[in-house]
Amino acid sequence: MNMFTNHRILFGTSFALFAFLTLVVAIMPAITNQKNNAPLPGTADLTADQLAGKQVFIANGCVACHTQQVRNVAMDKAWGERPGIAADYARITRTDFWRNTATLMGTERTGPDLSNVGIRQGSLAWNLVHLYQPRAVVSESIMPAYPWLFELKDQVAAGEIEVSIPSKFNPTNKKIVAKKEALQLVSYLQSLKQTELPEAPSFLYAEEEQEAKPGYSIQLPDGQQLYAKNCAPCHQTNGEGLPGAFPPLKGSSVVLGDDLELFVNIIMLGYDARPEYAVMNAVGLNNKLSAAEVTAIINHERNSWGNRAKPVDAEQVKNMMDFIKKTKTP
């Protein structure tokens, strides 16, 4: 046969087969996808600062450990309200002539997914501390520290943002000031939010929701886990917070007191009444915590780290939250 003796025919055939398959499974789907793809209504391009922050994200290879994709499987619910769809990435185009498109979907989740991190963890103060030294806020973290995004100064000038870090992580006695790049990176992270869809595709392999039967009290979820997920990054697992950044909950008058309305309000809408601490975001509202979940968190906080106070009632919390929702729904 010719193919075994004529190298032109042989190599020509194998090249043609490969090129044809490439066309069908790679080039054509890619072109179709980039043509029939419009961004979701209500979204906007990144601002100049956010874009610069994305460049910092790319340059430091953050994608090595952080994905930006919510798969349509139930286990990914932790990372977003709904599965990601192609339109979510439609605004991302080639970085420039020299560098390719950065959808930053990633393939490794050594650290958390970031698709919705702007909602989950939007606090500027927390993000700056975390970038300067992750272990200052999450002692188990193995994320690299990024001190080159900050500078050490004797004096903080007007308009500059100082990062308060426990002295263990800042032995120099100087002030740690965020550089432009750090602020840009945080503003990029804050921009990572899933857009709400009226009819979102559902997750696969979901467990059936347990509906509370009438006449029974609401089944409370695990408060410790919810606390670990929603509160511990700032207030710490030991409830002691970080001096100068996040207040302690251990022995806190709000946690142990009887003003339940204030407590629920802080969890749902955030807090900015104490100048010695950083601003707290609307953690509850952003993460869409349910009344049962908020109750579980409150009861966990009221009865941990030496705190002793009466558990609160889920019905009461629900009433307050209904009121908050009515007044605060955007």
């Binding site: 490439t22 890619a30 072109i31 980039q34 793809n37 192609a86 080639r94 498109t101």
Partner: peptide, 16 residues
């Protein structure tokens, strides 16, 4: 295919 510098917007990048 992967490096041609004028295409792969959006999810096109991921497919490639």
């Amino acid at each position: 295919v992967a490096y041609w510098p004028t295409w792969q917007n959006g999810l096109g990048e991921t497919i490639i």
